[in-house]
Amino acid sequence: MKPFVKHEGLVVPLDRANVDTDAIIPKQFLKSIKRTGFGPNAFDEWRYLDRGEPGMDNSKRPLNPEFVLNQPRYQGASVLLARENFGCGSSREHAPWALEDYGFRAIIAPSYADIFYNNCFKNGLLPIVLPGEVVDQLFKQAEAQEGYVLTVDLAAQTVTTPSGESIHFDVDAERKHRLLNGLDDIGITLQHVEAIKAYEERRKNETPWLFV
């Protein structure tokens, strides 16, 4: 996994609550058996005016000029500012794959759906939780100031605004450690092989019907 240490990037504000994973990557693109290439179809139904299907040349499709990601001032954005319950709905990991493939490295929102939040950490994408009123302030600043950039420092657990204001965020110690170092979960788990086997032996005695 790609580690996340520190990132400075242009911010795009997506001002909607409850953005679901169907919106982040519509179902027709889930037919792919690959892990990459979802970026051009991130937010497909909001981003384009036509109906998107797998295999289309996305560079030739009509863009929806109203959608915030299409506005010239937000081109190249890598920090997504969002509202509460971001990533709700389906467990599809294609959602963080699409955001990461689009170029996002960090998301800032007051809250996330659990499965999406978890999936982000598996893909080097940092979902930051900040209080609603702080997120509100960031929305106002990002909308008011063209070229608004935030610096995210995972080691220090801070988000720094262009004026130098440093905002602390919380993250689980274990998730932080793995993301900072880009560690592979399976590799870590396999260091516990003996504990897993011992657990299985004990449970085979207690609940043998589970191991038939």
């Binding site: 467990s91 990991e93 963080p96 978890n118 598996k122 893909n123 399976i186 788990t189 396999l190």
Partner: peptide, 11 residues
Amino acid sequence: GTSEVEHVLAT
């Protein structure tokens, strides 16, 4: 998610 599907299959 899919990363966890792989993780459960493997471990």
